[in-house]
């Protein structure tokens, strides 16, 4: 089961070898009310403690595979189903210090049945979340 909010508490952690972190991960629930093919997700913007990381530089880890923006756009046969977690990998040398951080996320979802000027439409989440290990 998901936590209700878009950004999940669990899964917020540093990424890469300890002592040589290359970024951090944060876990999301499906940013849509329906399961969707991954090509309908046009990347995810992340802001941590006021520092912005655009959807062009972040990638998504889904079912153990990592997709950058180009991979996502091509992934017409990959499904992000209801109940699946996805983790955003945000590149940031050294990762984040253990502590409580302010996170903002905009998952850019394309809904083909929306008028063209509303595509993509950001699905937003914002919260405080905790990194435990350096």
């Amino acid at each position: 089961m998901y936590e209700f909010q878009l950004i999940q508490s669990t899964g917020f952690r540093n990424h890469g070898p300890q002592g040589a972190r290359d970024g951090f991960e944060l876990r999301l629930r499906l940013p849509n009310y329906r399961g969707m093919r991954l090509s309908l997700l046009d990347g995810i913007d992340v802001t941590v403690d006021g520092e912005f990381f655009g959807h062009e530089v972040n990638s998504l880890i889904l079912h153990g595979k990592t997709y950058d923006l180009e991979d996502m756009r091509k992934a017409t046969a990959v499904s992000w189903a209801m109940g699946d977690f996805g983790s955003v990998f945000v590149p940031k040398a050294g990762g984040l210090a253990p502590g409580i951080h302010h996170l903002k996320v905009a998952a850019r979802v394309r809904s083909p049945y929306f008028p063209p000027h509303l595509q993509p439409l950001p699905v937003n989440g914002e919260r405080l979340a905790t990194i435990i290990l350096p």
């Binding site: 329906r34 093919r37 090509s39 756009r73």
Partner: peptide, 9 residues
């Protein structure tokens, strides 16, 4: 159901 006519950007 959906017919996702813009499945590809």
């Amino acid at each position: 159901s959906w017919v996702d006519t813009k499945l590809r950007l």
